[in-house]
Design a protein around this nucleic acid. Sequence first.
DNA 1: GTGAAAGCGCTAACAC
DNA 2: GTGTTAGCGCTTTCAC
Lengths: 328, 328
Amino acid sequence: MAARAEVSQATAARALGGYGYVGAASRRAVLDAAQELGYRPNNVARALVSGSTRTIGLVVGDIENPFFAAAARGLADVVEEEGYTLLLANSDEDLERERRAIDVLRTQLVDGLVVAPVSGNDGDHLRVLESDNRPLVLMDRAIRGLQVDAVMVDNAGGARTAIEHLLKFGHDRIGVVSDADEISSTAERLRGYRKALRDAGIEPDPGLVSVGPSTRAGGYDAARVLLERPDRPRALFTLNNFMTAGAVRAIRDFGLRIPDDVALVAFDELEWTTLVDPPITVVAQPVAELGRAVGARLLARLRGDDSTPKRTRLRTELIVRSSCGPGG
Amino acid sequence: MAARAEVSQATAARALGGYGYVGAASRRAVLDAAQELGYRPNNVARALVSGSTRTIGLVVGDIENPFFAAAARGLADVVEEEGYTLLLANSDEDLERERRAIDVLRTQLVDGLVVAPVSGNDGDHLRVLESDNRPLVLMDRAIRGLQVDAVMVDNAGGARTAIEHLLKFGHDRIGVVSDADEISSTAERLRGYRKALRDAGIEPDPGLVSVGPSTRAGGYDAARVLLERPDRPRALFTLNNFMTAGAVRAIRDFGLRIPDDVALVAFDELEWTTLVDPPITVVAQPVAELGRAVGARLLARLRGDDSTPKRTRLRTELIVRSSCGPGG
DNA sequence: GTGAAAGCGCTAACAC
DNA sequence: GTGTTAGCGCTTTCAC
């Protein structure tokens, strides 16, 4: 090791690692020598003995989704500040792939794990992590019966305000373009949707909820099913960003006009929703903050916080534009 | 270790690691015991001795940028198939942060590194990597004088076809909304732009190239500068996706109409470019394929390929829509 | 304040 | 085929 150039190994390690007692003189000597020899500490060796890899594992449905990308960015910003690096894995919204991803990450001995779980019901593979004694925080999605930190968004509330907005325009038959309600955030949004209807004295019609995969194509197809109905709903509520794009495309392809033929409110704000004509009324989520809050929670745990698990809800905001009718 | 439950340590390691000779009987025994005890191999220890961490480092300007996100996805898909995990870092398009990110990744002993370098000129921090003897592949952007694998897009060609398209509509004064030409891909696009003009007998006017940071706001401001000119150009060419969004916003805010008041061609295809009115003519890049090609190159190196560095160019495609005038 | 030595959990020779 | 043994490059007692 570089240290030998000057003093002993332990001393060098202490100087480099910045722990224990080192004389000012030896410290200088070591640091200089390290500089000269271009010494890089070997984090793998360090991790083996210290038990910490300074990495955080992140498992999301698809990093290509702007929602996850922005959250990942927020998370990275926060944890990198403390010297952690993000290990990334895509689950592709598939439970089996999620399991494998978590397994690989565990094997890499990440110091902490962030997961946006595919399923709100099936959490056994996450329950196992408890024995690892490494912090886990759930991002955007919860798992029934799993008592761990989770930072989410007020999905039910966001959906409710969206529906109430549509209600104001006299829509009582509102179609929903949804992905699988196994995803906990989706389930919550659907719950908010039904609640808002019932509160208005309307019994939700299950036939108006059209389900597809969380992709553009999924949104297109799910919207198509709704638009093809003889009693086509005059209002649509889309539950996530990719599907919104697909739904807008479908509406166009049917030669329908927003908002005259069909009103639209979308969950999740994206750049382009302001660029299209008409600009779309959306339920905006604080995405970057979601990532940052998750990071903060994780860092707290990493620092030894062992309070009982916290579930945090971030507020959403209805941004009224022009996709529902005159004046909104 | 779990193994003791049955046989010796070395044998267990062999069975678990799948290397060396192991009798069928002992293999079974070991595997069963491992199963029972919920044994997880410790990749850190394994890495320390084997010299391989099964991780790939990725440094991009901003994972939130759909371009990088899609490329990252393609890369992840390819390398995960071979059991590698992506270690992610953002450089924020800042050279100093890029240096630090690379340093951290080296320290984590990634088996290979993928970088979309901020600067096409300053590559000393990457040159150092040669001594690491770990493969490095450049993604989307090259560095002058650095002989390493690189997978890029035909930026000059793409820009040329874009400009030729605009030329066909009679535009001879084409404004460019650009980010820093230190970014090699940007420099190439600008080169293609100038070449196309000169080939048409037009001397490029440097005043028509407006530069800003690679963000929506940067695009907005850069476009504004152009649109405020008394001799406002009647055509705009935007060099990347975020800036395109900003430019479109600026055009709208100026009360200008596409394509009547200003024609537009954008580099990089995004979902929303087909959703706005009019849909925008773009130079599409094979982004996912870019990531996959980078992954393939890296895996080849990891497998021992030591041929001379390859520079690959992926083809772009002009997708004509309606942002330049009647019929395109 | 500094050095010697043990050991983190594995792999890789090398004997048997 | 299987066991023994020696490290990988660090951190960490524990003497001095």
